[in-house]
Amino acid sequence: MKTIEFEEVTKYYQKYSALEAVSFSVHEHELFGLLGVNGAGKSTLIHILIGLIPLTSGRICIFGNSIAEAKHQGIINVAFQEQAIAKKLTVEENITFIAQLYGEYACKESVENVLEQLQLKEVRHQRASTLSGGYQKRLSIAMAIVTHPQILILDEPTLGLDVLARHELWHLITSLKGKMTIFLTTHYLEEIEALCDRVAILNHGMLKAVGTIEEIQAKAKAQTLEEAFLAIATKEE
């Protein structure tokens, strides 16, 4: 079943084209990766998907509904590239705040579950500003999943993390796999290889390839994802 459908999504900032007729779909419960270098249009696509910026033309459907309906139903939530946490609140207060804001019925129980699931119990009374980068990312994800979204968007979740923290976060993301549809953007190829079921490659706002890693490698006649990515990304230049 298709969870998200992008149909000819185009975004112009005055004359500059940030996205050019991007079309693909994301299936239910898959972990879908959106790969691209800096400035490829990944964050623009995410911001359009969550209604923060308007699209110039095209359409996005979530479970066949508009984004506004999906927002209204609380289907979608995001862990932003910047942590998007309240720095002076404790870990528990941050998660409780979001749970209350979304009107979580069993708020306390949901918060406890999320603290457990993302291994945040030991730092629950610690202020967010005193957490390490890895824990701040975890908190950001916790704030997104406490609302029980059917679609979780992870915008560059491991950006700026050290190798150890990155692997810990990958482990956590893998543990969420299958429970919800995860739409992940990154420019780390190893992240795509380690986590994603399918991947789309964006370059200069244009969709260059969609499919499993094997399909993309076969299409680019490459042995590795890195070779395939380089072949696809440098093709137009």
Binding site: G51, H72, V78, Q81, E82, Q83, A84, L101, M143
Partner: peptide
């Protein structure tokens, strides 16, 4: 600060 750290965006997509 809420804007620069995307906390504002998180609130924008909430049911507020």
């Amino acid at each position: 600060k809420d804007r620069s750290e995307s906390f504002f965006s998180r609130l924008c997509i909430s049911p507020l």
